[in-house]
Nucleic acid binder design. Structure first.
Length: 927
DNA sequence: GATCCGACATCAC
DNA sequence: GTGATGTCGGATC
């Protein structure tokens, strides 16, 4: 159950008649306990409560109902019960159906004491019961979750009653309608409308109980809000609608058409209106509510929205920290404070993937907080804000979030005015809303950012001799000369290469065509970085985005970063990989980075690293390279042949078999082969997991001349037939062509004497990369790389610390896992020319490593290289290997990995500059 | 023909 | 249901 569902269940429980016997079970059920769990509790098997009317769920809660007036005493009994501590209950709860009290025994949260019917307001308090051990934020977002759940129900109900509004053509109307409703709920609870609850009360009183004219009543109110004072006389508004103020600002213009309401929908509406909308958090609410209009995301609580801590990771280093430093520096100096305020008034914040606007809202709120402090120090606490909401601009593809983003900013402005200036001042200037629409609904990669967020500053620096002859239409814009700054921020969509639609790809290709022909290997998110760099190139704008970490790894680096660097932008600050998390019940499975880019010169740049508990530490460095490594800007281009004197490596054999050419030991038994046949037709097969965790699979391996003989074995013929149908069914023409030789893998490579196999994916926690030596019968799959019949010396290099450091730095990753690559990591590996003596010693070291492992037979690589339990002899063998190799580089051991990488980058640069440039030079990109 | 990646996939605890 | 750690084959060059 997610938070929305729990809130609904808890609310239902509170409105149902109180049943002292059933309550504990119903309460647990509301927090997602399964029937079987409850059954066991009921039967007493797992209920060890020693309090009358009590139910004790291990590690969770000790709850008891009691006679009227006994809540205090019962709670005390629960608290003092030894069973509570024994069972490690997190919560105690007592209720008599009139009042309810509860305590969180493990945290500092203040206890709850409230009327029974109000306890759903505190459902966030109990969320750990549902296994939602969230940050504090969700507890503080009870209202937003509740409102989202209710609006969700209303939205679905309205679409049911108005099927035509569910169609694409009318969805924007539906979404616009919802935005208006939310505004009205907020306005009626904050005195923006004359009289508390005016909107809901009017619907309640003026519309029929059978709901037949609800839409007309709402429509008249909307019409009033779209009628200026001057036009009121001729508008012929009914008296009850005429009391609503002129709001407009785009919100109530256009069609005031209202969907029809069923009785249920009308009840939902009244119910939502009766919530206390003053508690709305515009930053988080928007993210939740946007999911309401999204059929796929509904109920998922905004899977892709950015949490406030993550937004601040972007905004603080981008510009907020600088403002705060300046505030600190200004102290009580009135002139300096004024300068800062003037500076802030001209800052534009632009989110070209703004969703429901939470980056903009947070930026706005943080800046208002700084401004309020300035005004306090200058004794101007009542001063009207100098920060125009119109400086917060966004682009959003979907119309509903775009609506919500505008609304969220309006609400944020009002709330800030109330907070810093007082209710009266806030109200005086609130209506009518500003008619300028500063959130644009459209495709950010297609729109012209400079016309949506034109720079206000002096920083225009367009040069005729720019490296790229991209026509930038806005170059002619006559930028105002008033020293304003622009900060671009956001969390644009990441789609890898496979999740992009045809349109997405075409868009990216078009956008990148002036710079590269290799846009196909870039993530969709790169479009945002390139557009931001285009803006930064001709203005003083800086940008920072949350992004998938893959744009700073492996194959994307040599495509993306030369483009950005040539446009004159460097990394201003960055956060290295951390796991994506927000309040969604199912977090998106992605590891992200944050990258800030700028064309300004900085002597200090900050490279942040997220530690446990969401804290971050940073390293100061003079420059940050595209691999997010301090002080190295080297970009490694993949190569098909080795840069150094080492054996070429190839990808293992790709099966494309639907599992039919590959067999587990169990499946081999069912094949019905005799011993001779097994040895003839089956070969041990090695991919990542097999090398790391020990052999578990075999493959059917048939060379062409032997095909007829193999086909005479029915169980093998059957499998080949299955491969054929799998390949024919593929959408890939290459795969379909392979159906003609379905007895084989795509490649049929193996070492006549031996094969060194390197797993393609492996854990980053091991002290050395996994690699092993295999015999002539062994076969490598495409989940590993293979050196066929290469000198054993190669194994010594692959197993070295030097190589691990290189792979970790320049290869792609799966999240944070190593992702080995021959082109990116092996063929690029820089090593000095080896003497015969060097080769001899390295070979000996490789053998020593293999021997050291053998002493622990049959331990697997995973066991042997467990970072906690690596056997001493094996560690010594690796130390000796590292010693020999590192002496070849610098005549001694390296002090640490930083020093290793430094040397490797230095040598790589030297070797690629002198000779052996990769075959695919950047001749196209130079044009 | 060969590489490389996954707003992931799936196992084990 | 969360942490640990690597499948598989399509898309790309």
């Amino acid at each position: 159950m997610n938070a929305v569902e729990i809130e609904e269940a808890v609310s239902d429980l509170a409105t149902a008649p109180f049943d002292p016997v059933e309550f504990p079970y119903a309460f647990l059920a509301a927090f997602g306990n399964k029937d079987t769990t409850l059954k066991r509790l009921r039967a007493g098997a797992s209920n060890t409560s020693d309090v009358a009317g009590g139910v004790l769920q291990r590690s969770n809660i000790h709850v008891a109902t009691c006679a009227a007036g006994q809540v205090d005493a019962t709670l005390r009994a629960l608290r003092e019960s030894p069973k509570t501590a024994q069972a490690k209950a997190k919560f105690i709860l007592a209720t008599d159906g009139e009042t309810l009290q509860a305590e969180d025994l493990f945290s500092d949260e203040p206890p709850i004491a409230c009327n029974y019917t109000q306890f759903p307001d505190h459902f966030g308090f109990f969320l750990p019961l549902a296994g939602i051990t969230t940050v504090k934020q969700i507890r503080e977002s009870s209202f937003d979750i509740k409102a989202t759940g209710r609006l969700n129900r209303l939205y679905v109900e309205l679409l049911k009653d108005n099927p035509d509004w569910a169609k694409p053509a009318r969805r924007p109307d539906m979404n616009h309608f919802m935005a208006r409703l939310i505004f009205c709920f907020f306005a009626e609870d904050t005195d923006i409308f004359n009289g508390t609850g005016l909107f809901t009360a009017t619907v309640d009183q003026m519309s029929e109980r059978d709901s037949s004219n609800t839409h007309e009543v709402i429509g008249e109110m909307f019409r009033a809000m779209n009628t200026s004072v001057a036009d009121r006389a001729t508008a012929k508004l009914p008296r009850w609608a005429d009391v609503f103020p002129y709001v407009n600002g785009g919100l109530f213009s256009g069609s005031t058409d209202v969907p029809r309401f069923s009785k249920i929908a009308r009840t939902y509406l009244l119910n939502i209106g009766n919530l206390d909308w003053t508690k709305i958090n515009p930053d988080i609410f928007g993210s939740m509510i946007q999911a309401v209009a999204d059929d796929d995301e509904r109920g998922a609580l905004g899977m892709h929205y950015t949490s406030v801590p993550n937004i601040l990771k972007v905004l603080n280093p981008l510009f907020l920290d600088d403002l705060r430093d300046q505030l600190e520096e200004a102290g009580d100096n009135g002139r300096k404070l004024l300068n800062l305020r003037n500076r802030m008034a001209k800052i534009r914040v632009f989110d070209p993937a703004c969703g429901s606007g939470n980056f903009l809202v947070i930026a706005y709120k943080e800046m208002r907080a700084i401004e309020a402090e300035i005004n306090r120090r200058r004794d101007e606490a009542d001063r009207r804000t100098d920060i125009p909401l119109t400086n917060y601009r966004g682009i959003e593809l979907r119309d509903f979030p775009a609506e919500i983003a505008r609304l969220a900013l309006i609400i944020a402005e009002y709330q800030c005015d109330v907070l810093y200036r007082g209710q009266k001042e806030a109200l005086a200037e609130f209506l009518p809303l500003d008619a300028q629409n500063w959130i644009t609904c459209g495709n950010a990669l297609r729109l012209d950012w400079l016309s949506i967020c034109p720079p206000t500053g002096t920083g225009v620096k367009l040069h005729g001799d720019d490296l790229f002859n991209t026509p930038i239409d806005q170059a002619q814009i006559d930028f105002e000369n008033d020293g304003g700054e622009t900060y671009i921020c956001g969390n644009p969509p990441y789609k890898g290469t496979k999740n992009q639609t045809k349109e997405d790809k075409d868009e990216l290709t078009r956008l990148l065509s002036p710079y590269t022909s290799r846009s196909g290997t870039l993530d969709y998110v790169c479009g945002w970085f390139v557009k931001a760099a285009e803006v930064a190139r001709i203005t003083n704008a800086e940008a920072a985005f949350v992004s998938t970490n893959s744009i700073c790894q492996g194959g994307q680096v040599p495509v993306l970063w030369p483009i950005l660097n040539k446009m004159g932008v460097q990394i201003k600050f960055a956060y290295t990989s951390f796991k994506w998390r927000n309040l969604a019940s199912n977090n998106a499975g992605v590891t992200v980075i944050i990258v800030g880019i700028s064309s300004r010169n900085y002597t200090e740049r900050k490279l942040f690293d997220v530690t446990e508990a969401d804290n971050a530490i940073y390293k100061s460095c003079s420059i940050i390279g595209p691999y997010l490594i301090p002080n190295h800007t080297v970009i490694v281009e993949g190569r098909t042949t080795p840069l150094s004197d080492i054996t070429p490596m190839s990808l293992g054999n790709a099966p494309y078999d639907g599992g039919h050419l590959i067999l587990t030991t169990d499946e081999i038994k069912n094949l019905g082969l005799n011993q001779t046949q097994r040895e003839r037709w089956l070969k041990p097969l090695w991919g990542s997991t097999e090398v790391i965790n020990g052999l578990s699979r075999y493959c059917i391996w048939i060379e062409n001349p032997d095909l007829n003989e193999a086909l005479s074995i029915p169980s093998i013929a059957e499998r080949i037939e299955a491969v054929k149908s799998m390949r024919l069914a593929s959408g890939d023409s290459g795969t379909r062509q392979m159906a003609a030789r379905s007895h084989q893998f795509r490649e049929m490579n193996f070492g006549r004497h031996n094969t060194i196999i390197v797993p393609i994916r492996s854990s980053e926690n091991r002290p050395y990369l996994p690699v092993d030596l295999f015999k002539s019968q062994d076969r490598a799959t495409n989940l590993s790389y293979a050196l066929y019949d290469g000198p054993i010396m190669n194994l010594s290099i692959i197993a070295s610390r030097m190589h691990l450091v290189w792979i970790a730095a320049v290869c792609g990753k799966l999240e944070t896992r190593f992702s080995y690559s021959n082109k990116m990591g092996w063929h690029t590996f820089p090593i000095n020319t080896l003497t015969e003596q060097n080769k001899f010693e390295l070979t000996r070291c490789a053998h020593e490593i293999l021997l050291a492992r053998e002493a622990h037979y049959p331990a697997t690589i995973a066991e042997l290289y467990d970072p906690e339990n690596m056997p001493d002899n094996l560690r010594r063998a690796h130390e000796a290997n590292d010693e020999v190799l590192e002496r070849i580089y610098i005549g001694r051991r390296f002090k640490n990995d930083t020093e290793r990488l430094e040397k490797l980058f230095e040598l790589y640069t030297k070797m690629t500059q002198s000779a052996g440039k990769p075959k695919k030079t950047k001749k196209k990109e130079a044009a």
